[in-house]
Amino acid sequence: MNPMNFVILAAILFSIGASAVLLRRNAIVAFMGVELMLNAANLALVAFSRLHGQLEGQVMAFFVMVVAAAEVVVGLALIIAVFRARTNISLDEPAELRG
């Protein structure tokens, strides 16, 4: 089995995650979509690492995970702050920036 198949799998997962961000109004669900997209990218990185026989891809994936962890912490803190202010975590509610 060619590792390229994993790259295709990563592409499919990425588009599923993107659809989730586009479609779901629940901030947490949308956020999970973002996580899925990040993981898809990670999968591609690992697959390429395997393809080229180099460790850099894995190291990059590792860094992505760290950054994603930091992002999750801040992002969820934001969601909680928004929830405190609005008792609601719909992404469509805070539309004050409407032009």
Partner: peptide
């Protein structure tokens, strides 16, 4: 007319990015 692009909805912006 350009203002209409600024809907205030995060999901629209994501749509633009994608």
């Amino acid at each position: 007319s350009w203002r209409r692009l600024q809907t205030g909805y995060v999901r629209s912006y994501v749509g633009t990015i994608l």
